[in-house]
Design a protein around this nucleic acid. Structure first.
Lengths: 186, 186
DNA sequence: TGTAGTGTAGACAGATCGGTCTACTTTTTC
DNA sequence: GAAAAAGTAGACCGATCTGTCTACACTACA
């Protein structure tokens, strides 16, 4: 049992709780109790809660982007990319994506809003995640104008918020026609 | 000087601070210090912080919807409504809307995310605000399909998030062409 | 087998928070 | 002008949070 075992257990627990309940609503002691690990061990692997938060963001970042990538990599043209993207979002919103925990919005939007005010590094990382998503999408779309790419990203963010705040888990599905319309030459 | 004077002073201060820094980041004592009002007076007008939060949401709700309404009421057709809406959002994001305090995202998205987990009433009010916005927009658009109305709302929410999290204050402007395209018959 | 590293359990400190309460002052109202 | 209502200033309580520290147990390895 290597040392990083405890570290990854703590990280898994922290990510699960932070995403489910929000960073501020989850204390260090709850992470400890839920993971069954002692406090000193946590502070041996992470110097502070903020460091644990950042590591959680990195883990989620890696997993979420890999998941999205896997959903659109098989698409053969722009239309299929957009279809697969919005289908994937709908699966996510309705808890039909086994790779992801139950939907509670975007971890990065949530964290930027509730934690970014007091922690610049968290805010910066959340911004970076959004940029990375944009690049992954751009890499799968051929000859796509910047404005249309931005609009697709805006629709994605909006759908997430609609699903979370308004409970409209069909938000992504509803704007799929509009997203496809964007691809047409006028 | 009627009693409601102190109440409205507290409410103004609370709304300003809650919106600027987030509800959790602002303690009761900060509201008191900033407003120059005694603690007992606050608890004479509001039974708890949660009640003050709800009153702040209501005040913002009323003001924001009135502001949006004023921006689109002069539009003579669907195209003008959409143009005015997204121009207004861009003004808001870039602090060119004197009626609104400096942009820090949507108070209702922010509050739902950071406070809605522990307070159902707050979550419900935020959802209701989004519904009211949708109705105000619907009332100004003629013969608009539900799906297009939903997509316009999604673009609006997405633009707010892009402006706040990614710092893209031109997000609304960028998706105006897409929004206008939605209005065209296919 | 002894030592260094890692773990556990949890008391504790220091800070902050929401909310109550007392004692006193000001304002309003009849 | 007296009584009632409303406001001030801030001490105080209990709860909660992050992070430190002590005392002890287990494990790996030379």
């Amino acid at each position: 049992m290597v040392a990083s075992d405890k570290r990854s257990q703590l990280l898994e627990t922290a990510l699960q709780l932070f995403y489910e309940k929000g960073i501020n609503a989850v204390g260090i002691n709850e992470v400890l109790k839920s993971s069954g690990i002692a406090k000193k061990t946590l502070y041996n692997h992470f110097s502070s809660k903020d460091e644990l938060v950042l590591a959680s963001l990195q883990l989620r970042d890696q997993r979420f982007l890999a998941w999205i990538e896997s959903k659109i990599e098989k698409a053969v043209d722009n239309k299929q990319v957009v279809i697969q993207l919005f289908k994937a979002l709908t699966d996510w919103f309705n808890n039909r994506a086994p790779e992801l925990p139950p939907f509670r919005g975007c971890f990065f939007i949530n964290s930027a809003i509730e934690y970014g005010v007091t922690n610049d590094e968290v805010a910066a990382y959340c911004r970076q995640h959004k940029q990375q998503f944009r690049q992954i999408l751009a890499a799968r779309l051929t000859d796509i104008p910047e404005g249309i790419l931005d609009t697709l990203c805006t629709l994605k963010e909006g759908a997430i918020v609609m699903a979370q705040v308004s409970g409209d888990t069909m938000a992504a599905e509803k704007c799929l026609p509009a997203a496809l319309k964007l691809l047409n030459k006028d």
